[in-house]
Amino acid sequence: MAENQLTDLAAPGIALLGLGVLILSRRRRPTRVTALPVLAAPPVDRGTAIHAAKRLNRAAGTLAASVLADSAVEHYRGSFHNKAMFAPLVTSALSLAVSVHGVADKRPAAHWFRDTVYVVAGLTGLIGTAFHIYNVGKKPGGMSWQNLFYSAPIGAPAALLLSGGVGFLAERVRDNKPGTDPLIAGLPAGRVVAAATGAGLLGTVAEAGLLHFRGAYHDPFMFAPVTIPPVAAGLLTNAAYGPACSNRRLTRWWLRLTALLGFAGTGFHAYGVARNMGGWRNWRQNVLNGPPLPAPPSFTGLALAGLAALGLLEDNPDG
């Protein structure tokens, strides 16, 4: 039995870990300063801002992909009984598409279409969150644990909001005048992105915590998403509000760990599906009723945004 479980676990787990490592290692670091940031005051160049923006596009795209897959599965489960349930599929697909475009785009200045899509995606996420809250509230029992567990999850549309938000920040970073420190609404871009990402991580942790509580934390690995990402959120928040020049090696590695966790989570969830009655052969039930496969990579998307924020902070140390 144990052997079987291990093999079940190993195949998807290794595959996804491999994919995760591949994506992370593809990060190009052309202007990476090897000396400690405190010693370096690198010249602000156009390339770093664009590079940072592209990394944020990539994070937004990862989040969008997670939302696309998750909302497709969950809203299929909900039989699309309300036409608005197609909205997140459309907007997350668009967000994914413009993110890919952004990653490939070497030009400075925000792109109006990307901007529009990111704003629409963010708004869709916001409206979706409101709609899911309304949905919970109108059930018998209202805002109860029971309804938080089984009604439309409040945290899910927030991932779309995050995708739109990170994408929007990507455009703002890209939009800075060459040769100046990237600013967003007058604030250093790195700090803004770090703060937003930290908050997003905490929201995602809350969602994972709620659903893993529903699963009674029956497997000790279920504690991973409520222990590792909160530390990442804390480190990022510290980066956002802390002194400009500090050693962020721990933060960087912890964010990488969080990014890997997102992929590993999908592997664990695949194992969870196998543990349900009938396993993968009963996929039409178990993919829907088992742990959600597309949900964990939200952590990866946010961790990528956090890494981009660190890059910005180190490339453009303010004050």
């Binding site: 349900n276 039930q285 009723n289």
Partner: peptide, 12 residues
């Protein structure tokens, strides 16, 4: 059970 327990899968 509403989640796996030992050799019991969750209720279908």
């Amino acid at each position: 059970v509403s989640a796996p327990h030992g050799q019991s899968p969750p209720c279908v």
